[in-house]
Each structure stands twice: as C-alpha cells, then as structure tokens.
Design a protein around this nucleic acid. Structure first.
Lengths: 73, 73
DNA sequence: CGGTGATGTAAAGAAAAGTAGACATGGTGT
DNA sequence: ACACCATGTCTACTTTTCTTTACATCACCG
C-alpha cells in the first residue's frame, strides 16, 4: 500500500466545524469510520466522488480540503 | 459497475489544448489510454490523485475539469 | 485500394479503495 | 474503579479502479 501524495486538512476542518467526530463525518459522507481514518491519515487517496462529498460537508471547495504537491516522481 | 455522478470536460479540454489525443493525455498523466477513455466517458470516477494530475496537465483548477452535481441520493 | 492514426469495446487480472468486526488506548466524567 | 466515547490498529473480505492485450470502426491520406 503506497502512501498517497495527496494531503488534506480534514482534521482541522472537523474541529472547525463544531468538533465533528470521525464517526459523524463518515456517516454524513456515507462511508465507514475506517475510511475516514485512513483518508485523514493520508494512507490512501479517496475517490474523486468521496473527495467532493467531504468538501461539500464542510461547505468549502475541494482544494481547501485536499492538496496535491508538485510532481516529483 | 455503477456509473459515477461526477462529470467532466476532458474532451473539450483536450481539443482546447492543441488537439491533444487520448493517448497523449494518458502518457502525460501516467496512465493507460483505456483509463482515459473510461474517465472521459464517465464510466467511473478516477482517483483523486489522477484527477489532480489531469487538471495539472491542462493547467486549470480541478473544478474546471470535474463537476459534482447536487446531492440527490 | 492499402495503410495509418484516433477512438472505442471487451475480457481477464492486478492493484488500490472501501467495508465489517473485533479489540486496544487515552481522556473524561461519575 | 467503572462506564463511555473518540481515536486508532489489525485482519480479512468485497468492490472499484486501473492495466494489459487484443480486436473493431471510422476518417483521412497515399
């Protein structure tokens, strides 16, 4: 399982939105808590669909949640 | 295989960028031509990582390439 | 006509993402 | 001490994404 290059600010956004728990975010997005943990820790990059859903929960554009660094293979 | 809710403007962007072929886009993004075809046709939504790479090839923000409709479960 | 390049389809399989359940830990509150 | 809750880990499993190969079609050009 290669770690993804995509980083995110989910943890900050959760706290900025009323101490939202991982479980609550998972439920709102429609995935399991396991998945939220893995994404938040950057263990793998989510599907584009899930990325959009997460951004929507926080009411921010996708780029505010996920960042992609310069291409350095 | 449920079709994704995510739509995209890859085809237009390819033509807007000097008649770029699917094969060339695939090579630039680092995936196969098959994958480009499937994404372009919306048969499934790409990984967030690939979405970022495609946007980068065209030099536009991710939202210019991919759109996510209102949540209608 | 024959050849080439761009696009599309299909199937098998590998790889990554996502699920489900069990269990561990640290904090907080009673 | 005990219960509770949020977080995290692990394993095994299913689903989706992506690859590889092969072949079909269409337009264009010689």
């Amino acid at each position: 399982m290669k770690p993804t290059r995509v980083t995110n600010t989910i943890r900050s956004l959760r706290f900025a939105h009323g101490e939202m728990t991982q479980a609550e975010l998972a439920e709102r997005v429609g995935v399991t808590r396991q998945t939220v943990i893995a994404i938040e820790q950057g263990r793998y990059s989510p599907s584009l669909e899930m990325a959009f859903q997460i951004a929507r929960v926080f009411g921010v554009p996708l780029d505010d949640v996920f960042q992609y660094p310069e291409t350095e293979e």
